[in-house]
């Protein structure tokens, strides 16, 4: 059972209290972008075997969206962090590096 700590209310919530929101830190493409960019934005979700960054919502709690860094092959959670950021903070990246040296995700390392 997946347990994530909500960075806002500090509650350690198990997954039936949460709603998974898919890949994190997407950059929006819309009017004015190329067809390829729009296609990738709509359909090409990252589907890594290993380190992943995701959006989650504390739906049966404070109701807020937040981010989580997680491993898709072990369900290990590296940390959760605020939604008010465009990329994972350094502390989260360090936590991932400590457990998965050499990891990469999109253009992050």
């Amino acid at each position: 059972m997946l347990i994530l700590e909500c960075p806002y209310c500090g509650v350690k919530a198990e997954e039936s209290e949460l709603h998974a929101g898919g890949e994190a830190h997407l950059k929006r493409f819309g009017p004015g972008s190329s067809d390829a960019e729009f296609h990738d934005y709509l359909f090409m979700r990252k589907n890594p075997r290993g380190v992943h960054f995701e959006r989650w919502r504390h739906i049966n709690g404070c109701g807020k969206w937040f981010h989580a860094a997680r491993c898709t092959t072990t369900l290990e959670v590296f940390g959760t962090y605020s939604a008010q950021t465009l990329e994972p903070p350094q502390a989260i990246r360090d936590a991932v590096s400590a457990k998965r040296p050499g990891w990469s995700w999109r253009d992050l390392k």
Binding site: A20, R49, T74
Partner: peptide, 14 residues
């Protein structure tokens, strides 16, 4: 199905 990406071949109890 579970709502999140997973490669572990085991799902959630709930």
């Amino acid at each position: 199905t579970d709502g999140f990406n997973n490669y572990t071949q085991r799902g959630s109890f709930h």
